[in-house]
Amino acid sequence: MNEWIGTALTQKRDLLEPEAWALLAAYGIPVPKHRLVKTAAEAVAAAGAIGYPVVLKVVSQDILHKSDAGGVRVGLRDAEAVQAAYAGILKSVRAYQPNARVEGIFVCEMLPPGGVECIIGTTHDASFGPVVMVGLGGIFVEVLRDVSFRIPPLNKADALAMIGELKGAALLTGIRGQKPRDVEALADMLLRVARLVQENPEIEELDINPCIVYEAGAVPVDARVLLKSVF
């Protein structure tokens, strides 16, 4: 069993975001630069090492929706902003959920604009077991349910076919003079996620939402891994 999953199971919790990123990275998925810190000074040092601008996010097993809790600050351009964001996050989180345990603050590289937001997810079907999903992010997934599914194991043709099935696939392949995005990189991430959930049956659900697909490369921005409560 994967060590992060093993630890989380013994502590009867899901994976924390840094653990989820580490799991993705272990499967060769290129995650943004990041560091988990415990003090404002550490946060400033981490931001300096990663390079500005950065994003700060709260790491807590008790908070399901980080943004709602005021636990995310983006576009931080200098040390002052990082210090203020660090204090601000702790204050907001305490106000939102006083008893929430805070494991630390996650300092991450802020990704450049110019990508198409997608979502990669997995779920567990009663009849088919693990199922992999891809969709276009934002309103496309939330309102239009523009998603497609496949059942692992996947081959590359399967991954490309599921991307091609999306009604909004043209957003990735290039419309109105836009350059095509790196569909191959998105397909590659799907293949890696499919292998990840197949090899780690303790996972109930995995969400990479969003992952940003650029002209070259695709990068996860937010990852969540939920474990089966009984395993």
């Binding site: 079907d125 199922v131 496949r150 059942i151």
Partner: peptide, 14 residues
Amino acid sequence: IAGSDAVFDAACRQ
């Protein structure tokens, strides 16, 4: 036990 239809449909395509 009829699973989710979207998943079943995906299996057919696959």
